[in-house]
Computed example of a mutant assay.
Amino acid sequence: MTETATQTQTQTKTETQTQTETRTATVTRTETETATVTETPSESPTPTPTSTEVAAAPTSDEGTTWWPWLLLLLILLGALTWFLIRRRQAQAELQAWDDRLLAAEREASWVEDSLTTQVLERPSAAEALPIWTAAQPRLLEIDEAFHALATEAPDGARAERVTDVRGLLRGLVEAVGADLATAPTADPDQFRARRAVIDSARRDLRATLGPVESPAAAADSDRPDAGV
């Protein structure tokens, strides 16, 4: 009886422990698997934008919206400023050239209206020659001024104007010089022919220059080194 009870208790404990261990292991595995399945979605959480990120987005958008326009505006203002300055400089250079041309044409007008008249009014070439000789440096300066103007002309029309006036002026100077270089004993017909050439050169030059200026303006253009 005692051995039977002992065996029964031993078997009962063994079975109980075995069952208990089996249940425990089963529960443990079940819980572990359940926990694993439950926790798996939480390993890759969907990122949720924070309020700071949401608030920062409009600032980035605003920055990329206005600064290119500001840069473009600065470029346009710079280009406009450069254009206005360059235009003003070009106008100033053009005005300076026109002023030089006006001064040279006044000198040419002085040759036709004043110097030539004084030379032709003298009764003889001997009396007229000193006046003409004294004016030679001024005549040379006038010719050089027209040459410089033609070289630096800003456009074709102005260059053509300078060339025309210079050519007509040189024609008049050469005609007067030829008349003074003729011997006093020359034939009267030759004398009249030379004066006709001078008169024609004067008319052509005067037609190109326009009417003679007032005496006050002519006096301002005259210089003391004329020698007349």
Rank of each mutant, 00 (worst) to 15 (best):
P215M: 10
L101F: 10
A159F: 05
L205K: 07
W132V: 00
D143W: 01
A134E: 08
R166V: 01
Q89Y: 05
E121K: 13
D155F: 09
R88K: 10
R86K: 11
A193K: 12
R203G: 10
A90L: 08
R106L: 14
L140G: 12
E213T: 10
G177M: 04
L120G: 02
R122Y: 06
D99P: 01
P211M: 07
D220R: 15
A103Y: 05
I131N: 10
A217I: 05
A207N: 14
L140E: 02
W132P: 03
D199G: 10
D98M: 05
D187N: 08
T163Q: 09
W132L: 01
R202I: 09
G177A: 13
R202V: 09
G167N: 13
L120W: 06
S114L: 05
G156K: 13
E144R: 08
A126Y: 01
E127P: 01
R170S: 14
Q95W: 10
L139G: 12
R158I: 01
R158T: 05
P211W: 04
D204T: 15
D155W: 11
D113Y: 04
L94V: 08
E127R: 11
E127C: 05
A178P: 02
T182V: 08
A150H: 03
T151K: 13
L149C: 07
E107K: 12
S109M: 04
A201M: 02
T185G: 02
A196I: 07
L102I: 13
S114E: 03
V162W: 00
E213L: 15
T208C: 07
A186P: 10
